[in-house]
Amino acid sequence: MKFLVCISKTPDTTTKISFSEGDTKFSEDGVQFIINPYDEWYALVRALELKESLGGSVTVVNVGPAANDAVIRKALAIGADDAVRIDAEPQDAFQVAELIANYAGDQAYDMILTGKETIDYNGAMVGAIIAEKMNLPFISLASKLDMEGSTAVLEREIQGGKEVVACDLPLVVSAQKGMAEQRIPNMRGIMQARTKPLNVVAGEAAAKTSVAKYQLPAEKGAVKLIDADNPAELWDLLRNDAKVI
């Protein structure tokens, strides 16, 4: 099977977020970047597991400038066979998805995977847009993915539970917790990643939204401490003050 895994470069989870140019730009100063965890831990690792049992290849694709190559090499170190970087500045989900769909259009991938969302813009949109652009079925928020012959069987989140769905290839999947376990690249993988192909392709697509301004949340007021010996006060405050119970 031929897999394409879409990976996004995001700030490390523990990054302190700040903005520049009058709160119109995310400030990258001193920020450590990683592969978006949902893309890496779940989508990429499950594609590798399926390739290992069924044969085939795993390609990772990223939209971004040459500065993204370090993060892309990490995906190769984890086990992807090759990588494609679409050389464009990512602007919104629509533009990123359109670039990937345009690239993937004539590549005959059996399955395209993304993480359920990125941890920077939390949009959860790229997979669905790729699917619509390529006229493919899309299964979102999948926590299990197995193959029965040429049919993919997935468990996906729904409101109030889960459902099991089956779908013939090709298709697009967004992955979340449960699908696989994080893999730490070993030294051999890191060495091999240096010589694996990382192909740079050109692409053009327009964004349909822009960020006008960022804002940090209002400072949280000081915590109101309640005496451990007077627990009734908590219920009183939650009922009459916060009005949440």
Partner: peptide, 24 residues
């Protein structure tokens, strides 16, 4: 609504209508 199903189909609607989309 950005429910699990909403997340799955709303971006596809945006493509069909040539619309921008903001979720969440």
């Amino acid at each position: 609504s950005n429910t699990p199903n909403g997340k799955a189909f709303a971006p596809r609607v945006a493509v069909k209508l040539n619309a921008g989309i903001v979720s969440g």
